[in-house]
Simulated scan of single mutants.
Amino acid sequence: MATPLKAAPHPETYYAGAYWGPRKESPEDCAVRTAALLTSLAECDQLLSRWYKPSKSRKDAQKYPLMPPEVPTLAEQFRRGVNRERGGPVIEQLGFSSWFGNGGVGADGVDLRLTCGAYSQAVPNSCVLTLPIHGASSERLIEASVLSRIVSSIASAWDADWALVTSWEHRESLTEELRTGTFVGWVTYLSRRRGGVPPLPAPVRIEQVEDKGTLVVLTPERFTAANSEHLALAKRVRELLARAGLLKPVLATP
């Protein structure tokens, strides 16, 4: 009797996210930061060099390019993304929301979702970039050195308090308290406002991001939630950073 073939393991899916506390900013302020981010991401990989306005479909999106980024165009997108109750006034303290796509389909589809200009303790400001799951683009992007540049670009553009790249599977493996707070990913950025990063065990690498913060890269190989050694390393680093007071929530807790 033939031995049944084992199904190939489902690849983990990765994202990059940056988060920061209350910061009142105008649509123009958010547009300037976004323009800087899109320009910086374009230098990280060709897949991140094309961006388009929101649309009902990726095919339609390609009719409305955002590159090279123009601040007035981006500011208008944020003005349209104000938060309000249906039929009610704008809720200014909740800032603005918008998203942009790269126009790719299938494995080459990438989205960038933003909440910015919020100055309420109800919701954090954030910038989340989805990453391709498989294919040539995934092989290029899901690599420690490239992801370090991506996280640095996002954190620097938004002067974030905390940023990271990790897999959704890793996030879901954490307790609810951790995954809704501040935790350690494959690559983690911590603003210098939080303090200095202590010595960390090998193979962890520490890099400075301009004069704004510190990048902590757990391992040069692909970090996965399926690897128990990776999870143990992430837990150990999280404990050391928490002990140093670097993993406080982005929003003040009651």
Rank of each mutant, 00 (worst) to 15 (best):
M1K: 06
A2N: 11
T3W: 01
K6W: 00
A8M: 10
P9C: 08
E12G: 10
T13M: 11
T13A: 14
T13Y: 04
Y15Q: 12
Y15K: 11
A16G: 13
P22M: 10
R23H: 05
E25S: 14
P27L: 07
T34M: 10
A36D: 09
A36V: 03
L37F: 01
L37V: 00
L38P: 02
S40Y: 00
S40H: 02
L41Q: 02
E43I: 00
D45M: 00
Q46C: 00
L47V: 05
S49W: 01
R50D: 14
K53G: 07
K53I: 01
K56F: 03
R58I: 07
R58S: 11
A61M: 15
K63W: 04
Y64E: 14
P68L: 08
P69Q: 08
V71S: 11
P72N: 06
T73W: 03
A75G: 06
Q77T: 06
R79N: 13
R86V: 04
G88E: 11
I91E: 12
L94P: 02
G95H: 05
G95P: 04
S97Q: 12
S97F: 03
W99K: 13
F100K: 10
G101C: 15
A107E: 14
G109D: 13
L112G: 03
T115E: 07
T115H: 12
T115I: 03
A118P: 03
Q121M: 06
N125M: 05
S126E: 09
L129A: 09
T130A: 13
A136L: 13
S138K: 12
I142N: 12
A144T: 01
A144L: 01
V146P: 05
L147K: 04
S148F: 00
S148M: 10
S153V: 01
I154E: 01
S156L: 12
A157D: 04
A157R: 00
A160S: 15
D161K: 02
W162F: 13
A163N: 07
V165P: 07
V165D: 04
E172G: 07
L174I: 07
T175P: 11
T175A: 14
E176C: 08
G181E: 01
G181F: 00
F183G: 08
W186Y: 08
W186K: 09
S191E: 01
S191L: 03
R192C: 09
R194N: 05
V197A: 11
L200D: 05
P203Y: 00
P203G: 06
P203H: 02
V204P: 11
I206V: 15
E207D: 14
V209N: 14
D211N: 15
V216H: 09
F223E: 09
A226P: 00
N227L: 11
S228I: 12
A232T: 12
L233C: 08
L233R: 06
E239C: 01
A244V: 09
L246T: 06
L247P: 08
L247A: 08
K248D: 11
P249V: 04
L251I: 09
A252K: 14
T253G: 14
P254I: 08
